[in-house]
Amino acid sequence: MKKEFAVFDKPENVKRFLRVFYVCLGVLILIDPFIHKHTEFPWEGAFGFFASYGFASCVLLIFIAKGLRIFLKKDEQYYDR
């Protein structure tokens, strides 16, 4: 039998993947001050604005969505009754 293609079954591969990911994040932050910024709004030029905005947006998105679930969630047969 052909060997299964299953790189992410091994925890060390997942760890390696995450490590590369974190390094990328570090690089993106480190090069931030060296970029020539042509901004339309004053806050765009702030150090790491886009990084923090992206992170905050997603955290906010998840927690608001989680909160909305309380009001919006119905069982799958809700409309069939």
């Binding site: 995450l18 990911f21 990328c24 994040l25 993106l28 932050i29 931030d32 790491g48 886009f50 990084a51 923090s52 905005y53 992206g54 992170f55 947006s57 997603c58 955290v59 998840i62 969505a65 989680k66 909305l68 679930r69 919006l72 969630k73 119905k74 069982d75 799958e76 809700y78 409309y79």
Partner: peptide
């Protein structure tokens, strides 16, 4: 930066178990 740090939020929330679980439901 916008995208990757958004992805970081996803990673951290999944790893910490704070990500809303997938459920069979209608919204």
């Amino acid at each position: 930066q916008l995208l990757m740090f958004g992805a970081l939020a996803f990673c951290l929330l999944i790893l910490s178990g704070n990500y809303p679980a997938e459920m069979r439901a209608v919204n």
